[in-house]
Amino acid sequence: MIGNDVSQHFLLSRAAKTLSLASIFRMSDAEAEATFCRVRWPETEGKPVCPHCGGVDAYDCRRPNGAPRFRCRACAKDFNVTSGTLFASHKLPLRVYLAAIAIFANEVKGKSALAMSRDLGTSYKAAFVLLHKLREAMAEEMKGRIVGGDGKVCEIDGGYFGGYVKPANMRENRRDRRLAVNQSGKRQCVVIVREREGRSVPAVFRSEGHALAFIKSRIAKGSIVNADEGKAWDALHAQFEMKRINHEEAYSFDGACTNAAEEYFSRLRRAEIGHHHHVAGVYLLRYAQEASWREDHRRLSNGEQMERLAALMTKKKASPDFTGYWQRHTSSRTERLLRS
């Protein structure tokens, strides 16, 4: 039993739980549509706005028993509540997509595509694409983000993922997998730039040393940068006031620590081990961005997280990477993911 003298974790408090899946599954189609309208067009209190010309004078022109559809009086073009968004050309009822966002937001470390397909009764392929679209929406918040500023503290760190090399069966045949010659070449480094008590920005590189230009462009001048003793960060002393911490001696000493960055990697590692099992390759950046978004919004209730995520998905245009993914309708997907 938790005593009155022990502080309660936020996730255990009532403030963290403002949404239940039961309330979503009880929604009628009309209620789900109205919810989507309010999320997509908050400026007009849910009244439809034409995505083609921006007109606000539209009327309902759906066929009997047909899907929701509006027609703009200004340009005479038809559209619906998901036109031009990540939900465009959706096949499932809107209520199912609301449930998917709620389930995704409820998870603290992440949600596997297999588990989502079981929850929604969809195919694995449909769940896989939907989850990556959610991660793509999360990444919209991080585009061009600059952290830090005068007197503010930022922390940087790197963690390596992927490129697993299975050891040989016999001990005499095993090799030191720490050496580059014995590695697969597929191992990648996730670098996190995180403002203390603020937001974060992740990116993926071949090594920590390749991330210096990215770090310099994402940390504002005047920031105090905390890092470990890795040699890759030595070049940052010329541009920032640096505080270094030797983790072999202490986790925090004389005001220097990278605990906030380590918290991020703790979340990402647990997502990899407990849910996804494999987050390497071209999708590593998406998983890194998801962990960053979850870490930044960990103090929001599940209802607030769902609303924010749904709003991001309705504001985001149709996905260039995952529209027609399984049909291979999109070319050069790998290159775009690595550049995003």
Rank of each mutant, 00 (worst) to 15 (best):
A113M: 02
P167D: 07
K133E: 14
G163T: 11
E229K: 00
E272T: 11
G281L: 08
L300C: 13
K243P: 01
R38H: 08
A15I: 11
R40V: 05
Q8D: 15
L86Q: 14
E45N: 15
Y97R: 02
M313R: 04
H132A: 13
L86K: 09
D5V: 13
E208N: 06
R145I: 09
E43Q: 09
R118N: 09
E249P: 00
R175H: 07
V279P: 00
G54N: 01
V204A: 04
S331L: 11
P51H: 01
Y59C: 05
R339G: 13
K143S: 14
R171G: 04
K91W: 05
P42I: 03
L212G: 10
A99W: 02
M313Y: 03
R308L: 15
A137D: 03
S112P: 00
H9P: 09
K231W: 06
G162N: 07
Y251S: 10
K152C: 12
A288D: 07
E208V: 03
R267L: 15
P42F: 03
V181Y: 06
S7Y: 10
Y251H: 09
Y59W: 13
G274Y: 01
D29A: 15
R62F: 06
E45T: 12
G84L: 01
D119T: 07
E31W: 01
S112G: 09
Q305E: 14
G121V: 12
S7D: 13
T85A: 05
T18C: 05
P167H: 14
D57Q: 13
